[in-house]
Design a binder for these strands. Structure first.
Lengths: 225, 225
DNA sequence: TAGATTGTTAATCGATTAACAATC
DNA sequence: TAGATTGTTAATCGATTAACAATC
């Protein structure tokens, strides 16, 4: 095994796989907190998130040493540390482009504010939609993009049809947006330095179908988690 | 390196990471086909999907040898092989529970039929919603679940609020559903043999925020892909 | 034959798991 | 002290990448 110094880990940062699980831990902790639980353990977090307890401990150890041996983790303290690590101690402006069914549903979704994400603009290309009120905001025209994405850390969400997504993506990048969540069913082409994550129902269903098919063919094997 | 026989690979099946990319390749091929492209290469597929060309070749090799050295891949033939591997040569019945904004948006989304997924039922707990027409179907009551999930390979989609999701999940499983796509912001507890995939906007935004924060702190480093 | 591109090997890298010393 | 649980190590496993022989 190769030696990895503490400095090296800090340089490389928290592993991607760990970062992807931190929101789950945070949600479990928030739920515990709401139920009045003040202290927890890697076993309890494991049960709540479906992750192994050894992995919970390893993940949390990347944030520093926030537990107490023989005792566990303080729910509030650990929540704060995870939120800090994820960058949730500030507000993040969010802008949604594409006010079709999905865009409207997302805009109406309450989960943004809870996590420190603030809807700052809703946009659409269709002049018939521009000016309409949606979720307490007024839909803006695409020409307003440079002004609306003025905040340097704006997160862009694309909910347009697939054929419009690349053009919208280019416009977002031109306006300075470098973090994009893409719901359109296309792979976006972006320059280095732009971070795109995709959410795609068709892909998820296809993966479920694949696993289901595997299980039908070899019913004695357990499903992969 | 450990020896892995061809038999062993067939037993273990296609790696999860590969399965997750197959839908991207299929989509790129479908797009090529629509543009009249009849032949392609691992380089072209790599450019279209943002995956390295070596990985494209390795992924495709798990499906068998469907390319021609020095020539490339036949677009139609490769599409068929990927669709076959994913289990898309048949129709998959899909059932959505939770007819709020998101559930309605998903029901209205056209992408289901295209991929061989067929909406067979929409359900909601609210009596005021039951009976309403949505996307050409009539919303059913939860009591109809056992009958509606009668087909053994029904894929269940949960678009309820978080607090109702576990209960709905249990009901789906009791009705025989073993493949679930969860849009609710909770970790679902399921027995072995049930496959759950989750789609969560808040988690995705938190991961984007984390990366963005990292880049602000060390702007000289490129972003992870 | 010369050029192109696959399929596969081997090396590397990153993620997971099990075990246990440290320590409350 | 006895029991519990973390934080860390080492082993294992799986995924990615680079290189290139095979072959059209």
């Amino acid at each position: 095994m190769t030696e990895v110094s503490a400095t090296e880990i800090r340089r490389r940062g928290i592993p991607d796989a760990t970062v992807a699980r931190l929101p789950d831990y945070l949600r479990a902790l928030t739920s515990m907190s709401g139920r009045g639980v003040v202290s927890t353990s890697s076993e309890a977090l494991a049960a709540a998130t479906g992750v192994g307890s050894a992995m919970v401990r390893k993940d949390l150890s990347f944030l520093g040493s926030h537990g107490v041996r023989g005792v566990g983790y303080d729910v509030t303290h650990l929540s704060v540390e995870i939120a800090r690590a994820l960058g949730l101690t500030r507000d993040w402006p969010v802008l949604i482009v594409g006010m079709g069914n999905l865009g409207r549903a997302l805009a109406a979704y309450g989960g943004f504010a809870a996590g420190g994400f603030q809807l700052v603009a809703l946009m659409d290309r269709d002049p018939a939609v521009v000016g309409q009120p949606v979720a307490g905001l007024v839909v803006s025209a695409m020409t307003a993009l440079p002004a609306l994405a003025a905040a340097p850390d704006t997160l862009g969400v694309i909910t347009t049809p697939a054929h419009a997504a690349q053009e919208v993506c280019d416009a977002l990048i031109a306006a300075g947006v470098t973090s994009i969540l893409n719901f359109a069913a296309v792979t976006l082409n972006v320059p280095a330095g732009v971070d795109v994550r995709k959410v795609d129902v068709a892909t998820e269903l296809q993966i479920l179908a694949f696993h289901k098919q595997q299980r039908s063919r070899a019913p004695q094997l357990a499903v992969a988690p």
